[in-house]
Design a binder for these strands. Structure first.
Lengths: 165, 165
DNA sequence: TTGGAAAGTCAACAAGGCTGACATAAAATC
DNA sequence: GATTTTATGTCAGCCTTGTTGACTTTCCAA
């Protein structure tokens, strides 16, 4: 098959199947590390990754609508609603009827919501910061380039929408 | 708080909270892209990501034991067993009683298992290859450096165990 | 021979996906 | 003004994949 030994390293990109498999494994193991700290914190409060995702994107875009979140998260409204309902009941998220369009709900983090978001994202950022420092500036720029190239075009839009660069 | 505007870009690593958040989002969106193709294929056959993970690591280390897989995957033996059982019943995985230690089971992919593994990993490698080509060789090396630095030390061992570099 | 490790099984449960059906309010369109 | 579309919420039920706990069988090793 196409699997063979690695060719001698060069400037050009010789991408053997083994190198690509290794890249896939890197994504798998790194994602585990990436979510480990948030998962531990969320568990303390009886929440899961789904809550984290909602909280993250509400913080990123305060006043965002439910439909907006659905597009970004790629889940059904029933799934998202279950998560949002508990966050609202627990007083972490506030849902305000839209000013212009009263069918819409604008979502915001409350003080308590901001606090949890901060606790989680601090831990996640600490891990990322350590990894970035260990790998160095050039590596970080490459990291971002590859990840961006790996996204579905539609999600890439959502990624580039904020903060840029 | 520590969140402010981005400082002017330089060679040194000024890691603002916003830059780190952006990095986290990149991981989130990229992982979605990374799993999208395999998920579609698995769905055709009525399998999920859990099956993919098992198949991947059995292919990587033919003859691996259940305990070994448990350590790599980080799930309970009950969870893994459910997945392995269906793969064995469906004839994708073969479980042979250990030669030295007959309590152990050595796991192998059958012909059919190899075929499914190939179909899935081909799609995943194609996505990775395209991303690597788009980002360029230096970016790929940075990508790997950062991901490796992001892993839990224990998982990092499993990552570095094979293929090296 | 007995303790403990490896593996498997059963049962029960939870999170968080999904589909489908239906309700309501408001906006948009005809 | 009547009708249709859109945004949201909700109920019910199903699936996958994770969990814990209890228990059994096998079998290596002290």
């Amino acid at each position: 098959m196409a699997d063979a030994q690695d060719p001698p390293g060069q400037g050009l990109l010789f991408l053997t199947d083994e190198q690509l498999r290794k890249g896939a494994e890197a994504m798998f193991f790194a994602y585990r590390g990436f979510t480990a700290d948030p998962d531990r914190i969320l568990d303390k409060y009886g929440y899961g990754r789904a809550h984290h995702r909602a909280i993250h994107f509400i913080r990123r875009s305060p006043g965002t609508t439910v439909n907006n979140l659905l597009a970004i998260l790629g889940v059904t409204k029933q799934s998202l609603n279950r998560v949002l309902r508990t966050l609202i009941e627990d007083g972490l998220v506030e849902s305000r009827v839209g000013a212009r369009d009263k069918r819409e709900r604008n979502l915001f983090l409350t003080e308590a919501g901001m606090a949890l978001e901060h606790e989680i994202s601090s831990a996640q950022r600490a891990r990322l910061r350590a990894a970035f420092l260990e790998a160095g500036p050039d590596a970080v720029s490459g990291f971002r380039k590859v990840l961006e190239a790996m996204m579905d075009p539609e999600l890439r839009r959502h990624y580039k929408r904020t903060g840029g660069k």
